[in-house]
Write a protein that binds this DNA or RNA. Structure first.
Length: 152
DNA sequence: CTTATGACCCAGC
DNA sequence: AGCTGGGCCATAA
C-alpha cells in the first residue's frame, strides 16, 4: 500500500488508466506511464500493480475492478514475478510469496495468461516457456503521438 | 542516511 | 535478432 498522499494519487491514476484498456486488448506498463504524462516511470506502474488490493479487500480499486491482466511489458511478454529469497540463518533459500488469490506471487504469470485467454486474447509460448501476446492483433496504444510512433 | 531491488525500457553492440 | 548495460525512481531493509 502506498504511503504518502502523492503515492496514493499516483496509484489511483494508474488504476484509473488501466480501467480504460478495453476487454480483449492489452497494453504496456510504459504506455500507461505515458498516458499519465510520466513517461519515465514505467517501473512505478508495476509497483502499483504489485500492491493492487485483492478482490475481497473491499477497496474501490481492486483485482476485480481493475483489469490488471491487460498490462504486459513492452515486448509483448507477460513478465514473471521474481521469486523471493528468504533468509534462513546465514543462507538464502527459495521462499513462497504470501499472495495467492492475489495478482502477484508465484504462478501469477500463468493466472494472467488464463485471465487473458478467458477474454479472448490469444497467448503463445516460446521454447523457454515465456508467454507472449501479439501486439499487432491485441495491442491497445491510443495517444500515439504523430512524431513518435510505436513499432509494429 | 545508504543500499538493494524490482509486474520496466531503450540504446548499443 | 538476441544480449548487455545503463537509466529510471519508489519502497524496503
Amino acid at each position: 500500500m502506498p504511503r504518502s498522499e502523492e503515492a496514493e494519487w499516483w496509484a489511483n491514476a494508474v488504476y484509473g488508466a488501466i480501467q480504460e484498456v478495453p476487454r480483449g486488448k492489452v497494453t504496456s506498463y510504459g504506455h500507461i506511464a505515458r498516458l499519465l504524462g510520466e513517461p519515465q516511470r514505467p517501473r512505478q506502474v508495476g509497483v502499483c500493480l504489485k500492491s493492487l488490493p485483492s478482490a475481497e479487500s473491499g477497496a474501490h480499486f481492486n483485482a476485480s475492478t481493475v483489469p490488471w491482466q491487460r498490462v504486459i511489458n513492452s515486448k509483448g511478454m507477460i513478465s514473471h514475478r521474481t521469486i523471493l529469497l528468504t533468509r534462513v540463518g546465514r543462507f538464502y533459500v527459495h521462499g513462497h510469496v504470501l499472495a495467492d488469490a492475489n495478482t502477484s506471487g508465484p504462478g501469477s504469470a500463468e493466472r494472467q495468461a488464463e485471465a487473458l485467454a478467458l477474454e479472448g486474447v490469444e497467448v503463445t509460448r516460446d521454447s523457454m516457456g515465456e508467454i507472449y501476446v501479439d501486439f499487432s492483433r491485441y495491442g491497445w496504444f491510443p495517444s500515439q503521438l504523430p512524431s513518435e510512433g510505436r513499432d509494429e
